[in-house]
């Protein structure tokens, strides 16, 4: 940043807007946390402050662990998100690298079709997708979603990676080729390592989308013990019009904690990766 600002300007330019952002982004979480930590009687009490806890209680957390398969759902979610992210990254690289760095016939057409794949709504896809999954005898198994999530994620990853690959100067690759390296080698040893932040950003973003996905998980994961968090939680804690508010909120918070941890660890790569490509390229 240019120069150091005086404290009144810093107050107005940084702390006040930052505080406003925090309030806007996080007040629903304050409510969620408060709700997960008080008994239903207090939640329903019209005289109570929705943001305050008079009698803190862990009862919803205990019930969540005791009465549902929450731990299993978390494990499933992480596994599914991880595997489908890895598949998507692999396929995304294979798609993006030639499109970004090679000249060959039909390249333009392919780039457009990858973009079009993005515009296809899930509402159009899910019935034939269910048919496909059943024909492959994959219904009710985690592999069903591990295979279908990449259909949503590959175009996304490819698009992001195309932008990133373009930022690496062409001369680098050419120099490697002149020195006798094969294209494969130039790619794996020269270009890809330079793009590590790009992988991280695409990977983390894909991971988030995968762990949030609802429709395919609902259709393809049927036994309680193989469900992911969103489907497991809504299936067993939303009973008709009776919602288990406290447990739902406890699950929402506990379910996103692992991801927050990953984010705070990788956030600088994430930031660097998501857009560096588009700016320079």
């Amino acid at each position: 940043m240019v120069g150091e600002l005086t404290w009144p300007r810093r107050l107005l330019g940084l702390w006040v807007p930052l505080a406003a952002l925090f309030v806007f982004a996080l007040f629903p979480f304050a409510w969620m946390a408060a709700t997960s930590l008080k008994a239903n009687a207090e939640l329903y009490d019209p005289a109570a402050n929705p943001m305050w806890i008079r009698h803190p209680s862990l009862v919803h957390y205990i019930d969540l662990f005791k009465e549902t398969n929450f731990v299993v759902w978390i494990g499933n979610t992480m596994l599914v998100a991880l595997v489908s992210t890895l598949i998507s990254l692999l396929l995304g690289v294979m798609l993006a690298y030639p499109l970004a760095r090679m000249r060959f016939p039909a390249a333009g057409l392919l780039a457009i079709s990858v973009a079009v794949a993005y515009l296809v709504p899930q509402t159009l896809l899910f019935v034939p997708m269910a048919d496909l999954i059943n024909r492959m005898k994959l219904g009710d198994s985690l592999s069903a979603v591990m295979l279908t999530y990449p259909t949503l994620l590959v175009p996304f990853c490819a698009w992001l990676l195309i932008g990133y690959f373009k930022t690496v100067p062409r001369e680098l690759e050419e120099a490697a080729l002149i020195d006798g390296a094969s294209r494969w080698r130039a790619m794996t040893r020269v270009i890809l390592p330079l793009c590590t932040p790009g992988f991280l950003s695409a990977g983390i973003f894909a991971f988030t989308l995968a762990q949030n996905e609802f429709l395919y998980a609902l259709l393809f994961l049927n036994t309680s013990t193989i469900r992911t968090v969103p489907v497991g939680v809504t299936g067993e804690l939303i009973r008709g019009d009776a919602f288990y508010w406290g447990q739902l909120m406890a699950a929402a918070l506990l379910g996103s904690l692992p991801v927050v941890l990953i984010y705070s660890f990788f956030v600088k790569y994430y930031v660097a990766g998501l857009t560096a490509g588009s700016v320079k390229g």
Partner: peptide, 16 residues
């Protein structure tokens, strides 16, 4: 932390 709204599954945050 500011990314939290983006991370929490939509079905659950909407309930809140």
């Amino acid at each position: 932390l500011l990314l939290l709204p983006f991370i929490v599954p939509t079905v659950l945050s909407t309930v809140a």
